[in-house]
Write a protein that binds this DNA or RNA. Structure first.
Lengths: 219, 219
DNA sequence: TACAGTTGAACTGTACTACAGTTTGGTTCA
DNA sequence: TGAACCAAACTGTAGTACAGTTCAACTGTA
């Protein structure tokens, strides 16, 4: 522990900070799906040049939260049934692939902890926290794949998914959610891979159905 | 089939075209790993404004071929041992996950065709084509996962990998490569998933070793 | 009343200029 | 030989300008 520990020069650009900030705002629902990010308006409001905003939004594009349309600029992504379907299919493939592997002790530990956190969150009933813990639990499962690149890819999808859940203000029933996850954890703990895979598939399947229902109601 | 099929207005921006062009040049080796993309120089040479180049490079960043460093701009990615390792680990996970699934007839057909194409290429001995077909074959395997998002993710990794192979000017021994892939195809055709998984793992393992050897020699 | 056509404001895509701060490679000096 | 310094090159950001596109409101017509 050096005396200079934690001391660090600001090693980031304005555009990067703006991108981070914008991502937060979008996740918080300040911009809805399909909304355009108007460069001039944002630039004026934040007191930066338009090209800086433009660059920030390009960086934002890396996270998948917005996509560019020619002559319309950046548009916030929208949870269409196809998007949701594709997202969950990819999740299912990765998580089941992870479930057939034998987790190392610390990985199993991480899964257990993530589950406990989820149970904890369910008790409080705070929807935002439940969603966070829910997603973190699944990320922990994917970690069993031992691939940093897949971890990153999954994390990006998680970001997108969390946004969808935010805008659809998912009505969760805490007990049910905990129960669904508990069977997964039990199967993993028991080392019963086939059952783990089956439970994960089932869980993701019901999740996607629930989400698509929300989508339909929303319309 | 409409009478207007294929008719389309040019729906792209200058920056997008520049990004595509730059990607081609990088893949072709015009810029080596670690090289900086100097905005002013490129802008002057191509007769466009610097901010347009800047935007093009940001778009290019989406493909993973370059990354930004503060105050140094865009830098072409380099095949470090860690990068290569991570890339191949992710490939291994995805391809083996695909191999445990039962391909639909048209997917099996696509794999067969991809393999035949590879054999064909091996006969010509053209290294560039062999690499192309090799990667296309593996992409065909991943398609069995039935996930467009994973297909896209894998394609992005393929792009990166092809670049690494390009700069390391892989010395391939055609017959060996065909043999390695043939055992995979045989296992898939036979429906022997365990063997398919094992062969894929072995193949990827030898590939990564070979590549890391090239890397070491290169130094 | 419904609908095609027109118009204008708002906005994007691109260019150009400018400048402070950082990086880099070379050169001088101890 | 190595540290200190310096100037050139380059990035990050600001600001202005303008052509082309989009979009919604307005107008005229059947």
């Amino acid at each position: 522990m050096s005396a200079l520990d934690g001391l660090e020069v600001r090693r980031t650009t304005t555009a990067q900070q703006l991108a981070d900030g914008l991502a937060d705002r979008i996740m918080a629902g300040a911009f809805g799906p399909g909304d355009r990010l108007r460069e001039s308006a944002i630039a004026a409001e934040l007191g930066v040049a338009r090209n800086t905003i433009r660059e920030a939004v390009r960086i934002l594009e890396l996270t998948g939260l917005v996509r560019y349309e020619v002559n319309r600029g950046a548009v916030v992504i929208a949870p269409t049934p196809e998007n949701v379907e594709a997202l969950y299919t990819a999740r299912e493939r990765l998580e089941t692939a992870a479930a057939v592997r034998t987790p190392r002790p610390e990985q199993l530990q991480a899964i257990n902890t993530a589950f406990d956190d989820l149970v904890e969150a369910a008790k409080t009933g705070d929807p935002k926290q439940i969603v966070d813990r829910d997603l973190a639990f699944h990320q922990a499962i994917v970690t069993t794949l031992d691939s940093s690149r897949l971890d990153d890819f999954y994390a990006a999808m998680t970001k997108e998914l969390r946004f969808y859940l935010t805008v659809l203000s998912k009505d969760d029933t805490p007990d049910e959610i905990v129960a669904e996850h508990r069977v997964i954890v039990d199967a993993i703990r028991a080392g019963d891979r086939d059952r783990a895979v089956a439970e994960i598939s089932a869980h993701i399947d019901t999740s996607v159905q629930r989400l698509k229902q929300l989508l339909a109601d929303d319309r």
